[in-house]
C-alpha cells in the first residue's frame, strides 16, 4: 500500500500517522506539501491532524481551498481512498468530501483524553479488521469535534450506514457519558456514500504501540493495508 500524507502549515500529527503507516506497511509514506497541485499516484491519501493555517476563519476552511486539496477532491471522485483524522476530518468536511461539519465542543473546552468508540460496521476498507459493535479505546485531542449535520443529512447517514464510529462508554453504551464533545448521535467518524472517504476526530495513529497506551488503533491501518495492497 502506497500512501501520501498531506502537510499544511500548522499540521502537527503528520509524523505520527506516517509512523503508524510505516509500522504496518514497512514503507514510509510520501509527504505532500499543501502548495503542491500534483503528486505521485498513491493507494491512500491521509489528511492529518493539527491546526492547519492556525485554524483561522474556521477549522479546516483555508486548507480545504489549498492547491493540494483540489487534487485530492479530483482523486476522491475517481475512488482513491481518503482518510481525514481530527483537523483532517474538519478539512475534508470543509472541502465537501463528507457531509456535516465539526463545531466547537459543547462544553467549550479543549479535550485531550482516551475515549471509547463503538465500531458501527466492519464493511469498509477502513474497518474490516474490526467487528461491528466492537469497542476500541483511542485518544482524542480537539476543541472543535462536535459533529453537526441537519436532520435530513443525519437521517441519510443512519439509513445508508455511513456512520463509522460512535463515542460510547467502556461497556459500549452509546449515551451522553461517553460523548466527549456533544457530537450529534455520538458521532466520532463518518464515511462518504461509497465508503471510500473516512473522517474521524479520534487519533487511531496514536494507539498503535503498547508502550503508548494501547494498540486499538492499529486495526484501522492493518485493515487498509489488507484492502489496498
Amino acid at each position: 500500500m502506497k500512501a501520501a500524507v498531506l502537510v499544511f502549515p500548522g499540521s502537527n500529527r503528520e509524523g505520527d500517522v506516517a509512523q503508524a503507516i510505516e509500522l504496518v506497511t514497512g514503507r514510509r509514506p510520501t509527504m505532500v506539501w499543501h502548495g503542491d497541485g500534483d503528486f505521485e499516484k498513491v493507494d491512500l491519501i491521509v489528511v492529518p491532524g493539527g491546526f492547519s493555517y492556525g485554524d483561522y476563519l474556521r477549522c479546516g476552511a483555508m486548507a480545504a481551498q489549498s492547491p493540494v486539496m483540489a487534487e485530492v477532491k479530483k482523486r476522491a471522485a475517481q475512488g482513491v481512498p481518503v482518510l481525514g483524522i481530527c483537523n483532517g476530518f474538519q478539512i475534508v468536511t470543509e472541502a465537501g468530501l463528507l457531509p456535516g461539519t465539526l463545531m466547537r465542543n459543547s462544553h467549550l473546552k479543549f479535550v485531550c483524553a482516551d475515549v471509547h468508540l463503538k465500531v458501527e460496521t466492519s464493511q469498509s476498507l477502513f474497518t474490516n479488521r474490526y467487528q461491528a459493535g466492537q469497542v476500541i479505546k483511542v485518544p482524542v485531542a480537539h476543541a472543535e469535534g462536535n459533529y453537526f449535520a441537519d436532520a435530513d443529512t443525519m437521517k441519510r447517514l443512519e439509513d445508508r450506514g455511513q456512520i463509522a464510529f460512535r463515542y460510547c462508554s467502556p461497556e459500549g453504551a452509546v449515551d451522553g457519558s461517553g460523548n466527549p464533545n456533544g457530537s450529534s448521535s455520538n458521532i466520532a467518524g463518518v464515511f462518504n456514500e461509497t465508503k471510500t472517504v473516512l473522517g474521524l476526530m479520534p487519533h487511531p495513529e496514536n494507539a498503535v504501540e503498547p508502550m503508548f497506551g494501547g494498540t486499538d488503533g492499529k486495526g484501522l491501518f492493518e485493515g487498509m493495508v489488507e484492502a489496498l495492497s
Binding site: 476552511a61 470543509e94 453537526f148
Partner: peptide, 9 residues
C-alpha cells in the same frame, strides 16, 4: 459560499 461562510451551519 466558497470560503467565508460554512452554509451547513
Amino acid at each position: 459560499k466558497k470560503l467565508l461562510a460554512n452554509t451547513v451551519i
